[in-house]
Every structure is written in structure tokens, then in C-alpha cells.
């Protein structure tokens, strides 16, 4: 096992995931708030593929680590830091007569999903810290 200290990569990934989910929550709130605004087009944050790319090491502009003896030019940490996600417009197939293309059912389910994934990340993160604490207490 490479020396990464006790705070492994997982903590950084979970932190990033929490950050991005929180940003996504802002966009979903904005969509729900503008559910009645004429000509409003809903937006969403897409980051899953970028996050996965950063983990695999194939992220844009950073050399991939394909061998354990490679020296990372930019660690996975900094690659993860560069993941910001991208804001995409997600208009519904049938916008209303006022040009508004928010589907409130869709937004509410996206919000529930985002919330559950956020809570899951927080829970795993706190379990991770709990594990470290248990180790520090010698399992007591």
C-alpha cells in the first residue's frame, strides 16, 4: 500500500462529491423556484463522468498513471480538485405555452435523488472518520 497517510483518497472523493451535490441542489432549487417563470429553461450539474475520469486518471490535461512506479505529475488529489462539473440545460420535450420548460415532477425526483446521494456521501464520510477513530483508540 502506498503511503498516503491515514486520510486516503476516499475522503477527498467523498468531499468532492458532497461539494458537487450541494452545487446541484442550488440549481435544482433555482429550477423549482422558476417553475412558473416564462421562457425559463431548467439547468442541471453533470459531474459523474468527470469525477470517474479523475479517479481513473484519464482526466483532461493530466497524465494517467498506468504503472505503480509512475511518478504522479499531479496527484489524484489535484486532479480531483479540478473537477467542477458542467452546467447543462435540461429542457422538457414539451415546453408550455409561456416557453417555460420546467417539469416539476422531474425536478422533485432529481432533488430527492440528489439529497439521498448527498446524505449517503456524508454517512460514508462519517463512518470513515469513525473507523480512523476506532483505530486510534486501539479498537476500544
Amino acid at each position: 500500500m502506498p503511503v498516503e497517510g491515514i486520510f486516503t483518497n476516499t475522503i477527498e472523493i467523498l468531499g468532492k462529491s458532497i461539494d458537487l451535490r450541494a452545487r446541484n441542489q442550488n440549481l435544482i432549487s433555482s429550477n423549482v423556484a422558476n417553475a412558473e417563470t416564462p421562457n425559463y429553461v431548467p439547468k442541471s450539474l453533470v459531474f459523474e463522468d468527470e469525477l470517474q475520469g479523475a479517479l481513473k486518471g484519464g482526466s483532461k490535461g493530466t497524465p494517467a498513471i498506468t504503472n505503480a512506479r509512475h511518478i504522479p505529475l499531479k496527484g489524484t488529489g489535484s486532479r480531483l480538485q479540478s473537477v467542477t462539473g458542467r452546467v447543462v440545460e435540461t429542457p422538457s420535450k414539451s415546453p408550455g405555452m409561456d416557453g417555460n420548460s420546467v417539469e416539476i415532477e422531474n425536478e422533485m425526483s432529481k432533488m430527492a435523488e440528489n439529497q439521498i446521494m448527498y446524505n449517503a456521501s456524508v454517512q460514508i464520510l462519517s463512518k470513515k472518520f469513525e473507523g480512523i477513530k476506532t483505530a486510534l483508540r486501539e479498537g476500544k
Binding site: R21, Q25, S29, M111, N114, Q115, N119
Partner: peptide, 13 residues
């Protein structure tokens, strides 16, 4: 109501 739910979601997160 949808917006109240959104506030509650943000708060619980």
C-alpha cells in the same frame, strides 16, 4: 409546496 420541500431538502442536507 414544491418550494417548501426544496427548502426542507436544503436544510436537512
Amino acid at each position: 409546496e414544491a418550494n417548501v420541500t426544496a427548502v426542507q431538502a436544503a436544510k436537512s442536507m
